[in-house]
């Protein structure tokens, strides 16, 4: 498997997933079904996470085909610009969905503003994702192209959306134009990391039996700090990738790190979507968490330290993946 293959494997998830999420969300509003609504929010969060490797693998897919006959760099750039705009809306939708899930945990249901905003943004995301799919199909499927040059034959709506899509090359240059801007992004990436590890690490350690005098419910209230840190790190991480796409794409440490982040998503699902969370949620001082909660806590600690370590190895492992 190469990066082009990975891109093709992943690229259907954000498109179809957000459509399924919007469907569940609309049905939940029509039927006033809180479980369906939560399912919709969970799907948006998962899609926001999966969109990251989908986006990142695009540069590798470009590298694999750009020198083949009949491949147009204009079409690839159009697809990349569309993907960048769609990713922005997808990540904001995902972040607000996580906020809604937190609200439904704390106040039994998401706030009204949250539901309205998520609905609106997810509808825009579905539209933008459809455009990413179409422009992506145009790159490699001449049989579905609208005319000889689809970029020039766009409809009115397509041209309007295109005006908001960043030009990939200009965006890349903008991120690396000033070394202090780059240092600032890296700095924020570290600070976001500390917010995550401070909050998640404390919760994990408590579940493993450290500082047992702390009630788990109160330590769990730190989770919004971790979510805020994760939002900072997704933002700065994506901007860094856009700044040096080739550097990250052909780096084995980068991909293992992203894989570890996805595994952390799975670990969080194992915690919150099974009854494990309900078992530990109300544990008071001195109470011992069940073994499966300890396994999840240990996995989380190991994976987060893996993510940190792999992040430090990205610099040394550049160019470890061939294909360009």
């Amino acid at each position: 498997m190469n990066l082009a293959h990975l891109h093709l494997l992943l690229n259907h998830f954000p498109i179809i997933g957000t459509i399924v999420g919007v469907g569940l969300f609309l049905f939940s509003l029509a039927g006033k079904n809180d479980d369906l609504q939560r399912a919709g929010l969970i799907i948006f969060s998962v899609m926001a996470l999966l969109s990251l490797p989908t986006f990142f693998s695009g540069i590798g897919a470009q590298g694999a085909i750009e020198k083949l006959p009949g491949v147009s760099s204009v079409l690839i750039d159009r697809h990349e610009g569309a993907a960048t705009l769609a990713l922005l809306f997808m990540e904001i939708t995902g972040a607000l969905s996580l906020a809604g899930l937190w609200q439904s945990h704390k106040f039994s249901r998401p706030a009204r503003w949250n539901i309205v905003t998520v609905l609106l943004l997810s509808l825009i995301t579905v539209g933008l994702m459809a455009r990413v799919g179409t422009t992506g199909g145009d790159v490699r499927h001449p049989e579905i192209r609208a005319g000889a040059d689809p970029a020039a034959n766009e409809g009115t709506l397509g041209s309007i959306v295109h005006a908001f899509e960043p030009s990939p090359d200009k965006f890349t240059k903008l991120m690396t134009a000033n070394k202090y801007w780059w240092a600032f992004m890296m700095d924020m990436h570290f600070i976001g990391l500390i917010m995550i590890i401070g909050a998640v690490g404390a919760l994990d350690l408590r579940m493993l039996g450290f500082a047992k005098a702390l009630p788990i419910a109160s330590v769990h209230r730190l989770v919004p700090w971790a979510l805020a840190g994760f939002a900072i790190n997704v933002t700065t991480g994506v901007l860094a990738f856009i700044g040096m796409p080739v550097f990250y794409t052909y780096d084995v440490a980068f991909w293992i790190k992203i894989f570890a982040v996805l595994l952390l998503g799975l670990n969080a699902a194992a915690f919150y979507l099974t009854d494990t969370f309900k078992m530990v949620e109300h544990m008071g001082p001195g109470e011992d968490a069940p073994p499966r909660a300890k396994i999840i806590a240990a996995s989380s600690l190991v994976l987060w330290f893996g993510v940190i370590t792999l992040g430090r190895y990205i610099q040394s492992y550049q160019g470890t993946i061939s294909g360009r």
Partner: peptide
Amino acid sequence: VGANALVDLRLLGFSPSIPLAPL
């Protein structure tokens, strides 16, 4: 820094439901 920030924020009044002494 993560653990120190946690203690600092608690001292500044965030997450008041966490008992201080066990930190």
